[in-house]
């Protein structure tokens, strides 16, 4: 019995060289495997880790003179960016009915002036009001406005009551009427919640410029939509707003929209 104890003592004796080796080995392993992840994570997370501030206010300017009749590049791009194209019509549903139920964050509208007959084509989406009626009426606070002016839905708080859809003066919101399959990681969606244009908020969080619709419109060579910071006097959008006459849709409601139109 005593011998066993002795042996144990002998084995437990500290070996400084062995300890140093293990220490170096652990350090090197950590440096090789963990550190790049930590570093990458730190670099990547910088824009997302910073709280959104009210130093900026994101908005759009739509020049209807440049918007081309029959072009739907902005709508298609929005669908791809946000995974709306992945949602399919339920097999038993009638096409005509599904058209009234499928989500649309941006749509093209063609107008004719009753007096003059002048035609106008424009994309219509959430107007990102400074004083949004959808946020006022939401019982749970799921509908909210970020400090940078983006109005969006917290999909964890939305109970699907659709009161915001009743309250929106621009009919900008959609209800998800059916199951969603194959959604994008950056744009989680789910049946039974309300959604709308969020100015490609995932791009804002990664510090990217522009939105999908703006890029698509530019790629077509139309440049009818401009995205930018309405609070920055040097931004393109502010300069254009200073140069050309523009207006808000339903100005009578005094909602101070973040989306402005020229030529309507």
């Amino acid at each position: 019995m005593e011998k066993v104890i002795d042996m144990k003592d002998e084995n437990d004796a500290i070996n400084p060289q062995r300890r140093a080796f293990l220490g170096v080995a652990a350090g090197v392993t950590a440096a090789v495997t963990v550190a790049p992840g930590v570093l990458l994570h730190t670099v990547d997370a910088a824009p997302r880790a910073e709280p959104v501030t009210s130093d900026v206010r994101w908005g759009l300017l739509i020049d209807t003179a440049k918007c081309v009749d029959g072009c739907s590049a902005c709508v298609d791009a929005c669908h791809h960016e946000n995974g709306l194209n992945l949602q399919t019509m339920p097999a038993e549903q009638a096409v005509k009915k599904w058209e009234t139920q499928k989500p649309a964050w941006v749509r093209k509208v063609k107008l004719q002036d009753n007096q003059t007959g002048r035609m106008t084509t424009l994309p219509l989406m959430c107007q990102h009001c400074d004083d949004p009626p959808c946020v006022d009426v939401c019982p749970t606070g799921a509908s909210f406005k970020r400090a940078d002016g983006i109005v969006m839905v917290d999909r964890h708080l939305c109970i699907g009551c659709r009161y915001c859809m009743m309250a929106c003066p621009y009919k900008a919101r959609s209800f998800i009427h059916s199951d969603v399959h194959g959604q994008l990681t950056s744009v989680p969606r789910g049946k039974g919640c309300v959604e709308s244009c969020n100015l490609c908020v995932q791009r804002r969080d990664f510090g990217q410029e522009s939105t999908a619709c703006v890029d698509a419109c530019a790629a077509e060579g139309h440049h009818a939509i401009v995205f930018g910071d309405l609070k920055d006097p040097d931004s393109t959008i502010c300069k254009l707003l200073n140069e050309m006459p523009s207006r808000q849709l339903r100005e009578d409601l005094v909602l101070n929209t973040g989306v402005r139109y020229s030529g309507v």
């Binding site: 058209e99 009234t100 649309a104 749509r107 093209k108 063609k110 004719q112 009753n114 035609m119």
Partner: peptide
């Protein structure tokens, strides 16, 4: 004062 001729969202 305007009539909507086409819309992608039943306006």
């Amino acid at each position: 004062g305007q009539t909507i001729l086409e819309s992608g969202f039943f306006d």
